[in-house]
Structure formats: structure tokens, C-alpha cells
């Protein structure tokens, strides 16, 4: 990120028709301006003119545009989808940037300088040298109870956030506890209430991190940001405090006790196992010799 951001050269000789990272420089400048504004007002949704991207909206066009605007030729990119580097979505976005920006790519969290993600924060703590870009479907946390955009904007402006607790109240009334387990609302730096995108609430505490966090919603045309070391508080009630806990199992492959797990059905008889959703984290642990209940020494 210390590189100058002007990147006019066309890097990939095989795809000389693309500007670096696909977007033209005017668009990148517009998006960078939105990002800077977002960083200046943590948690505030900045409108931007989302561009047509060569992929459908559900595929993270907001995140892709934010990544395209912050990438430099020296960056190393990682793309994850639900924690995995090898889903169709993750692979196609990674290929997109390999092709249009010619940047190095990696699956190792620690080696990446820009990480685009859908639905997870990596288990490995991020550093000041990294940027985490989230793909966001619905940026407005108040949308669920107040569909009028004019009204939600006013609520943010005037910090009228009672409605957000109504949502949690409804949860407890219906389920006996706060049942929201994804996209769990947070308050950033004591001011704006923000949707952290559909990450599991288990990941919420990680949002107080050293890396820059950028959020892009393509269809909804919003960008927001959390600067490094910002305060990020998950909303709750005094008698129903926020609980980020996850399934009470270690990973069946690598034995990790404190990573977020996916439940996998392994046979027709209803057999199941729990495995780290962060595939890079799990593979690295197994490479170091950690073995879970169903893991084998050569599993990785």
C-alpha cells in the first residue's frame, strides 16, 4: 500500500485490452474516494456508482470493485468463500484478478496483502500490512424492520438506533435467546451501527483488528470501512449478553479447539464430522502435525 496508486500500465500481456485490475482509472479514483471517506467515518455507508462487472451481482461485485481499487502490482491476493479458497466463487474471483491485474495469488493468509472474503474472517490474526475486503449483499442493518431508505438514513444521521434492539428483542421473544448467528449487528467506534456482512457472530470479536477492513455492496452501491484497531461492539441486552461461541467441538481433521467449524455429512447413514471452515488454517495445522479425531497423518 506504500506504492503510488496510479497504475496505468497494462500488466498482463495476454490481456492487453484490460486496464490494470479491470476498472478504468476514473472509476478507481471514485471508489478510492468512497473508501477514504468510509475510513474517515467508520461504519458509515458511503454511496458509490457501482460499475457493471463481468459477473453476476450475487458473486461479490462490490467486493471485487473495492479490491480492484486498492490492488497494486506488488500485492498478493487471497480470495475466500465461506473460509475456503477452492469454491467456484473464490476460484473465479481469484482468476479474475490474476488475469486482469497479473498479481500474485496465494491461499496462505499470512502471505496475502489483500484478502477478499465472503462470509468469514480468517482464523490467522491479520496484520497492519493487510487489507480485508468483504463482499456485502445487504449493507443496511435496519432494513429488516424499516424498509424506507429515507428513514434509515435519518436514523443513522440522528443515531436513532432503538429499532436495532427491537430486532434483537424479537429474537429473544421468539427463540428464548438472541438467535441471530450471522450478520450480527455491531456499533463501530461508539457511533454507527453496521452490518458486518453475513460472517458468523463467532467472527465478530475479530473485527477489532490491525488490518484495514473494507466492505463493498455492488447491487446496493455502498462502501463502508473499519480502520485498524477500531472499537467494534456487538449489540446485546444486559441480561442477554452477546455470545460469540460456536459448536462445542474440536476440528475432526486438525483438532483445533477455537476455530469456526462446518458440519459435514460424510455418509448416507447420517455420519457427520466437524471441520475448520478456514481451509488454509486447517491445512497449515495438519502440516504442522496436528491431528483431529478423524484426521490421518497424511491428510493434508
Amino acid at each position: 500500500m506504500t506504492e503510488p496508486l496510479e497504475t496505468h500500465h497494462k500488466v498482463n500481456p495476454r490481456n492487453a485490452e484490460y486496464n490494470f485490475a479491470y476498472l478504468d482509472e476514473d472509476t478507481k479514483r471514485m471508489i478510492r474516494r468512497a473508501i477514504l471517506k468510509g475510513l474517515a467515518i467508520p461504519g458509515y455507508q458511503v454511496p458509490f456508482a457501482s460499475r457493471e462487472m463481468p459477473m453476476p451481482y450475487g458473486w461479490g461485485t462490490g467486493g471485487v470493485q473495492v479490491s480492484a481499487a486498492v490492488l497494486t502490482p506488488d500485492d498478493t491476493m487471497k480470495v475466500i468463500d465461506q473460509g475456503a479458497d477452492d469454491t467456484t466463487n473464490a476460484v473465479s474471483i481469484r482468476r479474475f484478478f490474476e488475469k486482469t491485474a497479473g498479481v500474485a495469488v496465494t491461499e496462505a493468509t499470512a502471505e496475502a496483502s489483500v484478502i477478499q472474503t465472503r462470509h468469514r474472517i480468517p482464523e490467522t490474526p491479520l496484520t497492519e500490512d493487510q487489507i480485508l475486503v468483504y463482499q456485502v449483499p445487504i449493507p443496511e442493518p435496519l432494513r429488516f424492520l424499516e424498509p424506507r431508505e429515507s428513514e434509515t438514513r435519518k436514523m443513522h444521521e440522528l443515531e436513532e438506533y432503538g429499532l436495532m434492539h427491537v430486532k434483537l428483542y424479537e429474537d429473544i421473544a421468539r427463540h428464548g435467546r438472541i438467535a441471530t448467528s450471522y450478520a450480527y449487528p455491531v456499533k463501530v467506534e461508539g457511533r454507527y451501527i453496521m452490518d458486518p456482512s453475513p460472517i458468523p457472530k463467532f467472527d465478530n470479536p475479530k473485527m477489532e483488528m490491525a488490518a484495514i477492513q473494507l466492505f463493498g455492496a455492488g447491487r446496493e452501491q455502498r462502501i463502508y470501512a473499519v480502520p485498524p484497531y477500531s472499537q467494534v461492539v456487538s449489540l446485546d441486552f444486559d441480561d442477554h449478553p452477546f455470545d460469540p461461541s460456536k459448536a462445542d467441538h474440536p476440528c475432526d481433521l486438525c483438532g483445533a479447539e477455537h476455530s469456526y467449524l462446518d458440519e459435514v455429512i460424510v455418509d448416507d447413514a447420517g455420519g457427520r464430522m466437524f471441520v475448520c471452515s478456514d481451509t488454509d488454517f486447517c491445512a497449515a495445522r495438519r502440516a504442522q502435525g496436528h491431528v483431529g479425531r478423524l484426521g490421518t497423518e497424511d491428510a493434508a
Partner: peptide, 18 residues
């Protein structure tokens, strides 16, 4: 819900005990 409707104004002025 009815309870949420009645509770909204309380929460709007800072009530945080379910």
C-alpha cells in the same frame, strides 16, 4: 410483536434489559 411495539420507545431511549 406486540411486546416489541410497546418496547421500541423504551429501547429508543436506552433501555437495555430484556
Amino acid at each position: 410483536s406486540a411486546g416489541g411495539n410497546v418496547g421500541e420507545r423504551l429501547m429508543a431511549v436506552g433501555a437495555r434489559h430484556y
